[in-house]
């Protein structure tokens, strides 16, 4: 799967435009006009949303113009537009983002310590090609230093899951 820069630009411009629209809708529910005491609470976000939509439209048009120019350039024997993501990069990025997502889910269910042990160990084992015991060791060492820095030195509790109480850590 190859993603073109043009498609990425379009997607981003449409998303930021929708964000502006959401801002305007949310703000108009609060009222964006004037009262005796000055502007209503929705006044500022309403116009910021409007500006955001305007700028997004501008980017959209700019992307179309650039795409057309590049097309003509390619047709006359020039270089073809550089892809935003080729297959190899997309695969690398996809694996990393999937692992990231799994890490967040693991952290929310098992706590930050268990989540980071699993994530770091998995990455060192499957991606780095280290032996599993070593990979687990790296993960545990990381979690222990997190515990020492945050909970012992700075007294900041981190997110814990169901495992820590079994070890007597609260």
């Amino acid at each position: 799967m190859t993603v073109k820069v043009f498609h990425a630009e379009l997607g981003t411009a449409v998303t930021t435009g929708l964000l502006g629209l959401a801002g305007m809708i949310g703000a108009s529910e609060l009222g964006h006009g004037w009262t005796e005491s000055g502007p209503q609470p929705g006044y500022f976000p309403f116009y910021v949303g409007l500006i955001l939509i305007g700028a997004s439209l501008w980017n959209l048009v700019a992307a179309f113009l650039k795409h057309r120019a590049a097309h003509r350039h390619a047709a006359s024997g020039g270089e073809v537009e550089e892809p935003f993501l080729d297959r190899e990069r997309a695969r690398r990025l996809g694996v990393f983002i999937a692992a990231l997502l799994a890490f967040v889910v693991a952290t929310l269910t098992l706590g930050i310590y268990a989540g980071s042990i699993l994530y770091i160990a998995w990455s060192a084992w499957r991606q780095g090609g280290y032996r599993l015991p070593l990979a687990l060791g790296v993960g545990v060492a990381f979690a222990v230093s997190l515990y020492l820095i945050f909970e012992v030195i700075f007294k900041i509790p981190l997110l814990k899951g169901p495992i820590e109480p079994l070890l007597g850590i609260y």
Binding site: A99, I112, G115, Y119, Y130, P157, L158
Partner: peptide, 21 residues
């Protein structure tokens, strides 16, 4: 990078969590 990258990720998430728990 396969070791240091995930550690940086974990530090970022820990840091974000400590902002307001």
């Amino acid at each position: 990078f396969t070791i240091i990258g995930p550690m940086i990720v974990a530090i970022c998430f820990v840091g974000a969590y400590t902002v307001s728990n």
